Simulated scan of single mutants.
Amino acid sequence: MRSFDLTPYRRSMVGFDRLFDLLENSARSAASGDNYPPFDLERLAEDRYRITLAVAGFRKNEIDITAQQNLLLVTGRKEAAQQDRSNFLHVGIANRSFERRFELADFVRVESANLADGLLTIELVREIPEAMKPQKIAIGATAQPAASNDTKTIEHSAAA
């Protein structure tokens, strides 16, 4: 994979440090090739997402999900192997611990997590605070929050 030098952009753009860091970290992690466990990322609606990880062989008590600001960390820790593996002719089922990190956008929170049939499903929802939503401003009046999601507009009433 090619690596891009983002230095010229860092010099001329203010406030995009986090974005550049994400791009550089993403390129490094893709080059490392560790893609265990495999996962799907779905967009269910404009503000709803689902992450599905294939965690066959893991129990609920062996998986930990931690949500921090802008980071979702999913770790799986296998208990010490209790079965005798000397009788296996081939071991193809992964039986190792893992750590998966997902960068979350602002105002995205974990709604729920479920484990069924070897698939860990994490439901995410983006909730923009009321103060951050677009609002209509009438000239000569104070700001009034509007229920619509339209862009910020200014109403102008013409004098007759």
Results as ranks from 00 to 15, higher is better:
40 D>Y: 05
106 D>G: 08
138 A>V: 15
81 A>Y: 01
55 V>W: 02
130 E>I: 00
160 A>N: 15
51 I>Y: 10
79 E>N: 15
68 Q>N: 14
31 A>H: 05
83 Q>S: 04
25 N>Y: 06
134 P>I: 10
46 E>H: 11
75 T>L: 08
78 K>A: 00
36 Y>M: 06
30 A>I: 02
21 D>G: 08
32 S>N: 06
134 P>W: 11
146 A>T: 05
75 T>R: 12
89 L>V: 12
10 R>G: 04
19 L>E: 00
64 D>G: 00
95 N>Q: 11
110 V>S: 11
34 D>E: 14
70 N>H: 13
110 V>R: 15
32 S>G: 02
57 G>A: 04
66 T>E: 10
116 A>P: 08
21 D>S: 11
100 R>Y: 04
62 E>W: 01
67 A>C: 05
144 Q>K: 07
133 K>S: 01
28 R>I: 01
4 F>D: 05
105 A>K: 13
60 K>A: 09
1 M>T: 13
124 L>T: 01
49 Y>E: 02
10 R>Y: 08
141 A>M: 02
114 N>F: 01
58 F>L: 12
35 N>H: 12
152 K>T: 02
151 T>I: 13
112 S>L: 11
96 R>T: 15
77 R>E: 15
122 I>E: 06
72 L>V: 05
105 A>N: 14
95 N>C: 05
61 N>V: 01
47 D>N: 06
68 Q>M: 11
137 I>M: 15
98 F>R: 14
99 E>Q: 12
134 P>D: 11
64 D>A: 00
65 I>K: 10
67 A>N: 08
46 E>Y: 04
32 S>W: 09
107 F>C: 01
93 I>N: 04
139 I>L: 14
116 A>I: 04
70 N>V: 03
97 S>F: 07
27 A>Q: 10
14 V>S: 11
25 N>L: 09
35 N>S: 13
62 E>A: 07
38 P>M: 02
102 F>I: 06
48 R>D: 05
113 A>H: 13
147 A>P: 07
47 D>V: 04
3 S>D: 02
96 R>Q: 13
116 A>M: 07
27 A>V: 05
85 R>F: 00
42 E>I: 05
133 K>G: 02
159 A>Q: 15
20 F>K: 13
108 V>P: 00
14 V>H: 08
113 A>M: 07
128 I>F: 09
119 L>D: 11
118 G>M: 11
73 L>G: 07
83 Q>F: 02
118 G>Y: 11
42 E>H: 12
104 L>R: 09
67 A>T: 10
67 A>R: 05
7 T>V: 05
135 Q>W: 01
148 S>F: 08
119 L>G: 01
136 K>P: 09
127 E>T: 14
128 I>M: 11
44 L>P: 04
65 I>C: 15
119 L>E: 14
147 A>N: 06
153 T>N: 00
86 S>K: 06
160 A>Q: 13
135 Q>V: 03
152 K>G: 02
107 F>Q: 03
11 R>K: 13
66 T>W: 04
